[in-house]
Design a protein around this nucleic acid. Structure first.
Lengths: 228, 228
DNA sequence: TTGACTTAGTGTGAAAGTGACACTTACGTG
DNA sequence: CACGTAAGTGTCACTTTCACACTAAGTCAA
């Protein structure tokens, strides 16, 4: 008991909602808690903020420690601090949203101390603390974000087909999108580069594309709207 | 020195960016600090979070204590926690945006201990801590928010003219808007109720309107887009 | 080898929405 | 009663949106 303060202070944590896309549905990365409270329950990766680290740093550190993920897209979501949200006492948590590409995914369950696993957004297990609330807010944010900037950069592999990016949008928005209109609109932005490579598989090969990062970032700075 | 913890904890504060509209430009409510650090400097109203109160509660309490404002629209903005942002040590601050109507405005400088005053957004004094950063984020949020929901409800008096709401939009967006197109679009949403009352002054009287709260909220829930 | 299956890829036309634009109305003031 | 000032109002060209159906190219199995 080494730290004393004149007034009581809440504990401060960070939690991360990690979204991934497997080509079909949107997924969330959860960890199984190895300590009380909620021992054995699934929860968002996260933990206590150190005194000398910035908030995004703390989020990245916890993410790496608990899931092995690093160098991911990270964005602050909101802060949750209702008294009683943590049975250990007053704990305020700054929530982050992380987006990871398939090539960055850790193999499910391969981290040392804690167990981590991807869950489809629609089939989540019961979650510890107020994490269902945080997750709901994260989904809402993602649905909002996708309207004014393509999130494909962060969720798709470096090379992808137009069908993949459409499937991603359909997964996030939760409704089907017309193929021709979608492509027309997407290509009009001119930040996709068609490659001379094609998928191979059991059907007609699809042309691969990549993002033109410079054009995309220029557009984002100018502020653009991508409605569907 | 009554409170002891096994690990060190940051202090937790809330800060409020309070926007008002005086019919001409966008204003921000600031207080003059009565204690160190930054004694005598202008700053956002805010203060330490109590152990038993929720974050929005803390923001409302500090707002009332320091500016006399109550029952205002309040929305969480973001959390600022970079080490070194407060010279007293590690202090993490949850920032809120408040929108107040002119009829809720306190008279400038009328609170007891601290001095409060409205400043036009373009002519702000130097601010304490990282408050310039917070303010910039709040303005950005307001500009974003206005695109998908009219903020007039919270910033305009109960009865207002179409010219007033247009002036508000022009103040926030920082550019002129065509009068006819603006009215056409705004009225098409059908959440404004024309009243049989008119302004009086030295020109042609303008018809007053009010919001139809029910229709407005129904629209917000359905999600609508209000581009200009 | 060929036919069945599956996904990729492509254009048009009708309808709605956007944005530029100028004059008349109605009051207060001197 | 003339002037100043802000309120209020409609049209048209252009752009954007949305609905919609077939052909192309590969795999696989009989």
């Amino acid at each position: 008991m080494a730290y004393q303060y004149e007034y009581p202070r809440p504990a401060l944590t960070v939690d991360c909602v990690v979204f991934g896309f497997d080509g079909d549905g949107l997924q969330v990365l959860l960890i199984r808690r190895g300590i009380e409270p909620f021992l054995g329950a699934w929860a968002l990766p996260g933990g206590f903020v150190h005194m000398d680290e910035d908030l995004p740093e703390a989020a990245r550190r916890e993410l790496e420690e608990e899931t092995g993920l690093h160098d991911v897209f990270l964005e602050q979501l909101a802060t949750f601090g209702t008294p009683g949200r943590d049975p250990r006492g007053r704990v305020v948590s700054v929530a982050y949203v992380a987006l990871v590409r398939p090539d960055q995914h850790p193999a499910t369950g391969d981290t040392d101390a804690s167990e981590a696993a991807w869950f489809p957004c629609g089939e989540l297990p019961g979650l510890a603390f107020d994490h269902p609330l945080i997750l709901e807010a994260a989904l809402e944010r993602l649905r909002g974000k996708i309207r004014y900037q393509p999130v494909g950069f962060e969720l798709l592999p470096k090379r992808f087909t137009l069908s993949q990016i459409q499937a991603l949008y359909e997964a996030i928005l939760g409704r089907p999108i017309d193929k021709r209109n979608f492509r027309k609109k997407l290509l009009a932005f001119d930040f996709l580069v068609p490659l001379e490579e094609f998928t191979s598989g059991s059907h007609r090969p699809a042309r691969l594309h990549r993002f033109d990062r410079r054009k995309y970032e220029a557009l984002v700075r100018r502020g653009f709207l991508f409605e569907l």
